[in-house]
Design a protein around this nucleic acid. Structure first.
Lengths: 338, 338
DNA sequence: TTGTATGCGTTATCAC
DNA sequence: GTGATAACGCATACAA
């Protein structure tokens, strides 16, 4: 039994089979034949292509066109559900426009953006980057590719920026808690120096400053995971001031914070209220379910990719802000009367 | 201010700057110059390339070589942490070998594998597919590309298969529960028809059959998420037989099962024990923390990619089985004495 | 040891 | 309307 794999058909093969020239094949298949090729031949070409299972060679096309119809999506970590959802949105939109997506999830997290741009620059049309530290941005914008930033500081060399309305999100959380009678807050913050977390800290502080007897009794930073949140909340709860509300930068931190509270014998939400941010699956997996800010992760990726595709077409881009909402669930309750 | 973006340097530009021919540049940069190019010139070429910031054009290289150094990784859903980790492992190994990864996460889940292979076949050297339904496999193997299957039925046209030791995992769970005195089991199963879940069901049944008074009092299928698990466990708990142990196919199902138990006024693990599978982050986020089977997700992806790279080199592949372990935590306890 | 020439498959520019 | 032909950037067989 011979196992000879038939070589992939080329446009020449299609031409031969359809009895036309190779150039005609290209015209017909790229839909640029109207008025230049007779309908009869066009039909014949299409038929031949189908029968042969012809697929254009992307490498050849890219070489000739100088464009690759490929965008790079950069996320800090794909194992974070938020970024996975963002990626899904971006990939969907790109796919609808026949643009491929190559993914780079920065192993070093949010800070570094080393090799990929160097090596990838060879073959990309644009870059969609998310939640990167301020410094990393410049490394990306330097290579001449259109760049769209997600969940990042507007401006700064990007062709466009798409952000969820973080400020409003934090405002909703704070006012929700304030309305519940809480006055002593602790901020369980992500120990990541990025725009998005800067906004959260600023808005929280600002909202509390506007209410005479409200105070931020502690701010604890932690790596964004359950253990980090647990440790940080433990420190915050040990601090003087007796916080009754733990405002967390992320759902994972909130989950850890709930654990910390319980280990100290405090009930959530009776003794202490806890809020998250993102509305990941885990927010409704734990009990009590988390009151959290719902961020449109997939839509963020989708809008970002749309902005990138627009930039690729040469259209100017600005800053888009996506609305967020507060998901009020069971981890918040009226402040305890002491 | 002129904004003329300098065109990307080609190997010709490097040649010109180094005062050599383009062919020499190619030889030097591909490290095939030993004995053919004088060391002095080689040094000059490297210097010129560095100064110009030369990057080879991948499209041109692919066209010339006929290979793309790109592998397709197929996962059912990236938003599932297990697959995200698998992807990370695969991407890491591929990167070490300068192979790119293009990701396809089947929107339709595990069943369908529609377009990507058609359109992607143009530009891929191999495929790494994970946890696909039996039918989808054939669609992949048909296109002549080397294929490595992950967490799937061994054999069946794939160049190699890499699986976590699912059977042992389920055996460990069952015996753990049996050792705790449980005799009435319910299986909260994933409603997905794939090899991995088939094995779980089979082993669970087999292990229970080997213990005279042990019984599987209910099997309930559910979509793999918290709500699905909740609903299925609720049905299982309502069924006659009074299961004291809920064996779940997945951590998400286990989380939902815990919720279902609590809503019925049952305590976990005092009244009912619950086990998961996968050991996702959520397993240690909820309380009680889940007793579950730890699957080496990242290593699975890494081993799979190694197998694919080996297949690309023409080496024969077989079936690799990766060890798993039981993470005993707080969701299991001795069976209640009634 | 080095340079020249050719072709990979595609698209676009031209004569016909 | 249609079909040659040239280029895209690289790797290599071959000539010098």
């Amino acid at each position: 039994m011979t196992n000879a794999m038939p070589p992939r058909p080329t446009s020449r093969d299609v031409a031969e089979r359809a009895g036309v020239s190779q150039a005609t094949v290209s015209l017909v298949l790229r839909d640029r034949w109207h008025g230049r090729v007779s309908p009869a031949r066009a039909v014949a070409v299409r038929a031949a292509a189908r029968e042969l299972g012809y697929r254009p060679n992307l490498a050849a096309r890219s070489l000739r066109l100088g464009r690759t119809r490929t965008a790079l999506v950069v996320v800090p970590a794909l194992t974070n559900e938020f970024f996975a959802r963002m990626h899904a949105g971006a990939a969907r939109v790109a796919g609808e426009d026949d643009v491929g997506v190559v993914l780079y999830s920065s192993p070093a997290g949010i800070e570094a953006a080393p090799d990929p741009f160097v090596s990838a620059e060879a073959t990309l049309d644009g870059v969609l980057a998310s939640s990167m530290a301020a410094g990393a941005l410049t490394a990306l914008s330097g290579n001449g590719l259109p760049l769209v930033m997600l969940d990042s500081e507007p401006g700064g060399g990007a062709a466009a920026t798409v952000n969820p309305d973080i400020a409003t999100g934090m405002r909703l959380v704070t006012r929700h808690l304030l309305g519940l009678g809480h006055r002593r807050f602790a901020h369980i913050a992500a120990d990541v120096d990025s725009w998005t977390f800067g906004v959260r800290a600023r808005v929280l502080a600002g909202e509390l400053a506007a209410v005479p007897d409200a105070r931020l009794v502690a701010t604890e930073r932690a790596p964004i995971d359950v253990r980090g949140g647990l440790a940080a909340a433990d420190r915050a709860l040990a601090a003087p001031g007796g916080a009754t509300a733990l405002v967390c930068d992320d759902d994972m931190l909130a989950v850890g914070s709930c654990k910390a509270a319980r280990r100290r014998g405090l009930r959530v939400p009776d003794d202490v209220s806890v809020t998250g941010f993102d509305d990941l699956t885990v927010a409704t997996a734990v009990e009590p379910e988390l009151t959290t800010v719902h961020l449109p992760a997939e839509e963020l990726g989708a809008a970002g990719m749309r902005a990138l595709l627009a930039a690729l077409r040469g259209e100017p881009g600005g800053t888009t802000v996506l609305p967020v909402s507060l998901a009020v669930r069971a981890s918040t309750a009226p402040a305890p009367t002491r």
